[in-house]
Amino acid sequence: MQVLLGGGLLASAVSFLYPVWRYLVPPVATDLGGDSVVAAKVGELKANSGKIFRFGSRPGLLVRTADGEYRAMSAICTHLNCTVQYRSDVREVWCACHNGFYDLNGRNIAGPPPRPLESYAVHVNGDDVVVSRRRGT
């Protein structure tokens, strides 16, 4: 009886403490994401190029214009939810699915997209290019 009780108590304690111990080990990925996210490092993007980054659970598009300015917007095409990309040859944002075009402010300028892309605010913080959702506009 004592073996049963003692062994049981010990085993259950182990089964309670094991998850706790594993919980205490910090995971490798430490970036949480959020309303603002580090989309790129300064210098990562050449002028006149773009990159897709993860913004919460959706893709975002960070563009560095030919003048070196940063622009960011949602990368989900307003037509049929494809992921858009930056076209350095025409210097516009392009959706490959149905040839929709947006300007660098996210406005739909050609092709089927019915609405502009949501544009995000960008600021450079030290070495990070930080993109955040615009509030209350």
């Binding site: 049963l4 062994g7 049981g8």
Partner: peptide, 23 residues
């Protein structure tokens, strides 16, 4: 599976306690 194992240990403890009380 983890839950199953934990439940087994819990049942063992319960059985042990029951025996202990009776004894």
């Amino acid at each position: 599976k983890g839950l199953g194992l934990t439940l087994i240990t819990i049942l063992v403890v319960l059985a042990g306690l029951r025996l202990y009380i009776r004894q």
